[in-house]
Design a protein around this nucleic acid. Structure first.
Lengths: 202, 202
DNA sequence: GTCTATATGGGGATAGAC
DNA sequence: GTCTATCCCCATATAGAC
């Protein structure tokens, strides 16, 4: 079997199992079985289970930030409210399209570990920055009201992330399907409603 | 040592370690060491590690719901917006006062397990119901606008829970202290602002 | 109720053959 | 690159002494 294909099989099996059972709740044997691959190959390609997780996380954020850059290039002259809307749309859709990895990252982020701290400083702060920069520019341009930016951003990220982390809850208790296009559209609309109420002048 | 004291020591050591390292990331030996108690006593009193977790979860929600009942008894004739405000305040403060257990429950809820499903049906649906009932009554009374209740409630619970789950993120990336009184007050105010925008007539 | 000692299983990783 | 076999560690849980 081609090397790339083997690596891909391992990555998608791991993503699936980490998502369902958690990182600690998944064994390399189980990953190997799901990927129909010899378990020694996981150490061979990824230097162990943690390497698989790190690879998944890195490629998730690399893809996300590449898309954000493309969008910012496109939108650089648009009104700031529109730019904000587009960035929110991108984040929501991306999380929805990559729902399993979103959930596993958010879960592992909540345990105190070296990895979590690194992800926070490398990726999450940049993610937050993508939103807060636009709000700050809007405030400077007089387009938005003067607000405590960090706190608004936290509220937005809470709303756009929690439902994907608690996908089971959303399905079982709220009778909504968090992976559906329809849900992504509603979530985006709901967040923009919040942002309008916070930022725009009456 | 008195039996009750031993049980308490085990429970608080477990809460602390589950919070920091996750359920799977914590061993009974580690709990016993932290509690300064013989490790066999964990099986003796709680029928194993899972029993400790179940006890923590049950007592968390039992306390919460007892407080909600007291509040509802007090407030049963108040205007619905005020009742909503008080319930939100109660939930936020409770989560803040019990931040470690809040985080561990929310994290374990995101893995697919029997326990998670039971917690969802036993406790989380009731928790959600506490909020949605008030909104529905307010709509029926003409005090609130007609809105999709479940989705509003989901947005509220996202905002009031995510920051406690991602306490590290809040501290490291947002420079806020999620366990502080000040944070609880702000969070509550922020959520009420959202609810006003959604529910009240202009 | 508390302890020691141990049974039993599973985990991750790797050496070395192919 | 891939496989088998195995090493070694750590986990949970319990039997039985005190």
């Amino acid at each position: 079997m081609a090397m790339d294909q083997t690596k891909m099989r391992i990555l998608s099996a791991a993503a699936k199992l980490f998502d369902i059972h958690g990182y600690k709740g998944t064994s390399v044997r189980h990953i190997a079985e799901e990927a129909q691959v010899n378990s020694a190959l996981i150490s061979y390609y990824f230097h162990g289970k943690q390497g698989v997780l790190e690879t998944l996380i890195a490629s998730y954020f690399d893809t996300l930030f590449r898309r954000v850059e493309v969008l910012e290039e496109q939108d650089k002259d648009a009104p700031l409210y529109e730019r904000l809307e587009r960035v929110v749309q991108l984040y929501v859709r991306f999380q929805c399209e990559n729902a399993p990895i979103t959930r596993l990252i958010q879960r592992e982020l909540s345990v105190e570990s070296m990895l979590a701290r690194e992800v926070l400083t490398l990726y999450i702060s940049r993610w937050k920055h993508g939103l807060s920069r636009i709000i700050e520019m809007g405030m400077a341009a007089g387009e938005f009201r003067l607000v405590p930016v960090d706190r608004i951003v936290l509220a937005v990220i809470s709303q756009m992330t929690y439902p994907f982390l608690q996908a089971q809850m959303v399905r079982q208790v709220y009778d909504l399907e968090p992976y559906s296009e329809e849900f992504a559209l509603w979530l985006q609309a709901s967040i923009m409603c919040y942002l309008r109420a916070c930022l725009l002048f009456a």
